[in-house]
Design a protein around this nucleic acid. Structure first.
Lengths: 198, 198, 198, 198
DNA sequence: CATGAATGAGGCTTCATTCAT
DNA sequence: GATGAATGAAGCCTCATTCAT
């Protein structure tokens, strides 16, 4: 009937909304979307359960906002990592590392993103396509500069993301640490030269 | 598929168990684990709700069995696709295609596997490590034969799986079809030669 | 997701459904639809709250069944009251009395019916049109026999029901008793001869 | 309409109270008492939620005021319609028409009144008895003038109201229009001459 | 083996009302 | 006067699981 989550207009409201978002991030990240309940989120945020619905119309909505924020942050840190660089090899290394570091530092957020696809595919798809777009743009520039093999840069981007994602899943989410150097080197060698012997 | 009842049962019992597993596969595949209910599964299987607990101690248990079966099937079809082949390039192509074809044909099963990690990480990890092992073994053989670049073959396997998985996710789950030829060719070129210009 | 109220197949289930219907009748009749809660109904019925939803998919649905039953009963008792009679005046008197007696004896049910129109208009409309149809049929017979003034028998039926309903509301629901004889006589005189002096 | 603030207020306060009453009239009329919320009312009125409780101590209280106003208006328009007239038949027709027209034009208000009886019986009873009184007074005059059949004029009033109310319910609330002429004629014939053949 | 009724905890959400600013 | 954030009780409903037959 009455789903109109307000953007808060006072400072106090802003603070409450923030507390809720933080609490949701931690709760959903630690326990997963289905195990986390609105009640556990508000308990953690230190507000009444009803307060939740002043700012979010449903548990799904806060997930959406969470994933959007994560996407923004991740894209930003990718850009930051690569921005000033000119050496192609360094760019690859820093890009991959930025992604992995984000996954390690934000292990829980990373899981939230992955899980979102089972709650509402649209959330995840949006996150994903935007990230892929960012990669694709970089790769197109590099292609035009003749630095990398020609081909569908979108497919290349997906391949790159697949690798980063999988190393991220294994090392950060499952083992909670950055991949050891030899794994990174192997992955980078793979990215640069594929599997063919030189 | 390949149901192995844990409790020895009569022929009738065997049949019931089978109906349950099939129903679960379709229900969970179509609606997701949390949306599918024990009651919807038994309804689809055409048995009473209580019957479920004669064969499975919980909803999670049937998921575990499901994912195990899927893993077995996927590994088998990878082996089948590659087994007789000797040409390296053909091996790569057929391996990737086998994976993608499985994902396309069994779109729902594919989702079940991905989702399992948010219900019980152990289920997914087990599935994953076994699949990676299969890849790794193949890659080690190829390395020893000097056909591919040296390096951590485990990391290479993960990278390969990352690519396959992502293309699988995009084309089968999101778009419901096999990737077009140019995408496959780009991916294969990537696998063979990475991003470096020739 | 799963709204499939079962018709019970065992005697026990039949009994439970009955207990629920009885409890709902009393709870809603005494406290009104919005004040009565599913929990108060099941408490009164002596079953768990979840049991309610085995038999009814919502609070509204049990209201619908309640009103349907009341309609059936009321139409039956109108027929019973009039059936054998041949004298027109006696028919009018008995018909009106049957209605009023029903309202007095089932004061609460009467309120339930009236209230239903604010929960789901369709429930009430159905109840009402069927009752009016029954009246209309009787009036048409009488018209053809030349015993009553010609005119839209549907409108006449509605007028009759209006009178019965209002006396019912006042005397049974508000004052909890049958109207005194002079009120009934006045009403009957009105029905027979309207307001015109003889 | 005719708002009489209970608390003496400034001109600005007067205006706010008015906005609230108007908004409540529309909200409750369109959606019903239970579906309309204080928040939807204040939103419609364009004031903050807390403001509501400056003027009304509860949601019920504004309903009470609403129904009182409606009753006043309805009685006034009945009087207006009949006041100058001297021909009995014309009086009947205009009285009935006035009532029906009010119901049609104020379909929503009509529902509000009817619904009020399920929120607080006293509200409706008060409305009702006052209206009946007005009718009764007219009928007593007519009886004394010998224009209409003798009998309990209160019962006659109730009967008249029953008819008007039912036609009102059917045509204005359910079908949203004035009854067609033949229905009105039938009803008037009924009122004048009852069901007896001439 | 199979049934299906019963459970009851727990989830999400709404909303009238209060209160500090 | 007015605001709008905050409350918390209460409501409806779902569902995995148990158990008597």
């Amino acid at each position: 009937m009455n789903h109109q989550p307000r953007k808060p207009v006072t400072a106090r409201g802003e603070r409450t909304r923030c507390k809720l978002l933080d609490a949701a991030e931690r709760e959903i990240g630690e326990s997963g979307f289905h195990t986390a309940s609105v009640s556990s989120i508000t308990r953690r945020a230190g507000v009444a359960q009803g307060t939740f619905y002043i700012y979010y119309s449903s548990k799904e909505e806060i997930l959406r906002e969470l994933v959007e924020n994560i996407g923004r942050t991740l894209r930003a840190s990718l850009n930051d990592a690569i921005d000033g660089l000119t050496d192609r090899i360094e760019i690859e290394r820093q890009g991959l590392l930025a992604f992995l570091e984000f996954a390690v530092r934000n292990k829980n957020l990373y899981r939230v993103v992955l899980e979102s696809q089972f709650i509402d595919e649209a959330i995840y798809r949006d996150y994903y396509l935007r990230l892929a777009q960012a990669y694709t743009a970089k790769l197109q520039q590099a292609q035009q500069a003749g630095e990398i093999r020609a081909g569908s840069s979108a497919a290349q981007a997906w391949a790159l993301m697949g690798i980063a994602n999988f190393l991220g899943l294994r090392y950060s989410v499952w083992e909670g640490r950055l991949p050891p150097d030899d794994v990174i080197e192997t992955a980078l060698a793979f990215i640069r030269g594929g599997l063919s012997p030189d």
